[in-house]
Design a protein around this nucleic acid. Structure first.
Lengths: 339, 339
DNA sequence: CTGAAAGCGCTTACAG
DNA sequence: CTGAAAGCGCTTACAG
């Protein structure tokens, strides 16, 4: 059933039916009701392409997967995608996931030219990220998940990575830890840089020296977490506490601790960042893991909402949010030995 | 730059330019070259909505995320989505990820009515899956990742879960294991049922009794793997080997084994299914995990290709693939103690 | 081998 | 409050 058939059935013009369905005010209440009822009865939905062509809006949010080969795909992305799709659906929009085997730039160019999306979600931004400038140059509205260097205001949702890691560091120092390692992501990425800043700031606030050799970067997976922690634990001045950038890295870190015959918590403290990925829950570990927590899924939902606002014309400067991160205390962070 | 402008620039009609760009044979070689060069130079891409409206094809593949609340999102889905997007891109198609907060059925109905996609990818099918019938009833072409009961031929790509788990079981029996547990997904899902069948078949082939209490179902995450393994290990006749449905479940299983003061491999063997999720690699574990392996990412790419063929009119009966699964022998599977 | 024209199914000034 | 008509940017019989 299309608009023509529906309007013929109702004995109205396509114009009126269309206006009634789109909530225009200059349609009589009676007509509106009749139209809405008929639409429901015949299960009418406007043809997406026709609507897009007529309005110039794609009704879709775009996400370009940095694929190309065997790049590590962050498993938390599945939850992020689910959140984005959820949030987009609330606005009647779809989520278009685009692969860019030819490189991300070409992917964005294609989406822009084809007018396939109204806005782009940019995930995992780097401190200096060429994509932001490119997207603005292509005229693609963008919401960033995270933050990046930019000369103009842009819409973003970020979590307070710096505050979270600073507080975690200070808590560990309060427990008497003096050598606290940071198993971090690649600091080219803003989230990792912010966590580094938080760690440095926490140490400085308590007058502790910063030992750069206790900072391991590029370690988000289990294996890298294991390797990094293992190497540090072999040192004579091994750290007594670890801050880990992901639950997976933390799992590797805990494995390394146990390998050394030490106990997580009692001997060596561990704090991990948790995105809320259900397959690896900190409270189910032994001991339960102390975490900095922020739901990546909820962030996805909210980002889609920000995108909808952006498309509606809201000033990007008014679409900037930094979410606080919970520090959830469990058993893996404990007072340092001998204290 | 749109088609009108491009053709005016070339001094040709829109018809000819369109035909040249779409590879029709009745365009002179010379014209084609001119058109293609100009298109490249002006960075022309057809407007997606207009093309969709004119051809009646959405140029997009749909995936409905079973969201709604806090359902467990399989982290391997991120790789699957990446693969699908990759494969779709090879065909110039997009991937539309749709959320269905109102239930999956309504999600499919909406996609069908709006003609927003040409085909649907159905993931994680159940043995009896109402969605398959619904999609066929809605006239939505479908490619299933997995298999399901169906009275009519349908396109699918599945991996040989049964064969993989049968071989793994037989290998363990060959090592002298007699009590082999299966930590499985929910057997409502076909993949889990097939693995159960493989396990049962492997035991039967070697004349071993099947002990249903050694079958734990619904355990794909780390926590559930831990709980299931822990419970079995507490029994006086504890299993000496485990088959795990996911790397995460296997991680939990290994944790339970170590909790009992036992060694993975030397004391208790573990075999896990690995989707190739980079964040948790079996070869990096200690000991390295023996796995049944099949790349979910590659499956995603291929499914998009199957969908493209289906849309082009290929008979679904000719679009059915079962991929063999590798059994990769590493250190976590060893001869039973005392053998 | 090329082009004029109709059509895909909507939305939206504009007129009444 | 309602409708006739133009237009969004393509594709595709059809005619030449």
């Amino acid at each position: 059933m299309n608009l023509k058939e529906l309007s013929e059935h109702l004995g109205l013009s396509k114009t009126t039916v269309s206006r009634a369905l789109n909530g225009f005010s200059d349609v009589s209440e009676d007509t509106r009701r009749r139209v809405e009822e008929a639409a429901r009865r015949f299960d009418y939905t406007p043809n997406a392409s026709a609507k897009q062509l007529a309005t110039g809006r794609a009704g879709a949010l775009g996400l370009v997967f940095p694929t190309g080969g065997s790049l590590l795909v962050d498993p938390a992305l599945a939850d992020f995608v689910a959140g984005l799709a959820d949030g987009a659906a609330r606005d009647g929009a779809d989520l278009v996931v685009s692969s860019a085997p030819e490189g991300e730039e070409l992917g964005y160019r294609r989406l822009a030219r084809a007018r396939a999306v109204d806005a782009i979600v940019l995930a995992q931004p780097k401190v200096e990220d060429l994509r932001v400038r490119l997207l603005s140059h292509l005229g693609l509205m963008t919401v960033v998940y995270g933050r990046t260097a930019s000369s103009i205001p842009y819409a973003y949702l970020d979590i307070d990575n710096e505050g979270a890691f600073r507080r975690a560091t200070e808590m560990l120092i309060g427990f008497g830890h003096r050598r606290i390692a940071l198993i971090n992501g690649d600091p080219d990425f803003t989230f990792a840089e912010h966590r580094l800043t938080g760690w440095v700031g926490g140490l400085a606030a308590r007058g502790l020296p910063q030992d750069e050799t206790l900072h391991i970067s590029g370690a988000l997976g289990e294996e890298a977490g294991y390797r990094g922690a293992r190497r540090l634990l072999e040192r004579p001045d091994a750290p007594t506490a670890f801050l880990c950038a992901s639950m997976f890295a933390a799992a590797g870190c805990c494995r390394a601790i146990r390998d050394r015959g030490l106990a997580v918590g009692a001997d060596v403290s561990v704090v991990a960042h948790d995105d809320g990925v259900a397959v690896l829950r900190p409270e189910a570990q032994m001991p339960a893991l102390t975490t900095t927590f922020s739901s990546i899924r909820a962030a996805g939902v909210r980002i889609a909402e920000l995108a909808a606002a952006l498309i509606r014309g809201t000033d990007p400067a008014n679409l900037q949010e930094v979410w606080p991160v919970d520090l959830i205390f469990r058993d893996s962070a404990q007072p340092a030995r001998g204290r």
